[in-house]
């Protein structure tokens, strides 16, 4: 099974460890993983900002790059949602590519969804010891139905103590460019999230999207919380106590 790993532009630039964690998880599941070297961005920033032309150009680039893969896997619900849900909408009036776009969309998965529902991973390679709480990122949750999958995987780790926070499915306020355009609304939403995280007393906040994690981390630190760790679910599942190099 040839699996194309699309690490996403944010992971590539900000936190490559997440990409390696995803790689390790896919290899642990017995996949042959390919990482197309020319990959950049799925086009979501342009798409959500109303620039359809830019989004289409990048979508076609993704289509070509992952052409030979049986599956495309991303450690991000929002980027996976972009390909799965929004690419077909973007090209719905374009008969020349719509069929290949649909095929791409059908074989694209968010990482935890893929591990649980496609390869049915039974053991995860990482080790973790401590309490954590899980934030359900919006696109993964509402576009792809990612909710039980990360929890199923975390439950395979004997050292993990998962404490659910209140309103774990409420948006953290990131929303891509929203976080900069409406900074104070976005920060307030992040602040509400931080309150709920604090109330659990968990040592780490875990989610499946780096955008949300940066937003939450940024607000936690500004509030003076330097202790609570902010981790991608792949880092927990594949790393040594959340560290994955």
């Amino acid at each position: 099974m040839r699996v194309g790993l699309f690490v996403t532009c944010l992971v590539d630039l900000m936190r490559p460890g997440i990409g390696f964690a995803a790689l390790r998880l896919l290899e642990a599941a017995g996949c042959e993983v390919v990482v197309p070297a020319a990959q950049t961005c799925c086009g979501q920033p342009g798409y959500n900002s109303g620039d359809q032309k830019a989004a289409k150009a990048l979508a076609l680039k993704v289509l070509k790059e992952f052409d030979g893969c049986d599956y495309v896997v991303l450690p991000s619900g929002s980027c996976a949602g972009m390909i799965r849900v929004h690419y077909p909408a973007l090209f719905k009036d374009d008969p020349s590519v719509i069929e290949s776009i649909k095929r791409l969309s059908a074989r694209t998965y968010e990482l935890t969804d893929f591990l649980v529902n496609v390869v049915k991973l039974q053991n995860v390679p990482g080790r973790y010891s401590g309490s954590l709480t899980y934030h359900d990122s919006c696109s993964g949750l509402r576009e792809l139905g990612v909710q039980a999958q990360p929890r199923t995987l975390l439950a395979m780790m004997p050292g993990v103590n998962l404490t659910e926070m209140r309103e774990s499915t409420t948006c953290c306020g990131f929303g891509g460019t929203f976080s900069v355009k409406f900074g104070d609304i976005s920060a307030r939403m992040a602040d509400n999230k931080c309150e709920h995280i604090r109330a659990t007393g968990a040592g780490a906040i875990v989610a499946g999207d780096l955008g949300c994690l940066m937003n939450i981390e940024g607000r936690l630190r500004r509030r003076g919380d330097l202790e609570t760790r902010v981790l991608h679910v792949a880092e927990v599942l594949a790393g040594e106590n959340g560290l994955c190099k």
């Binding site: 490559p16 460890g17 070297a37 990959q39 409406f182 500004r222």
Partner: peptide
């Protein structure tokens, strides 16, 4: 500044994944 007015911005790890 829309971001950094009320939040810190985490820095990149230093080297890209690629």
């Amino acid at each position: 500044t829309g971001w950094t007015d009320e939040r810190d911005m985490p820095a990149p790890a230093g080297r890209t994944f690629r």
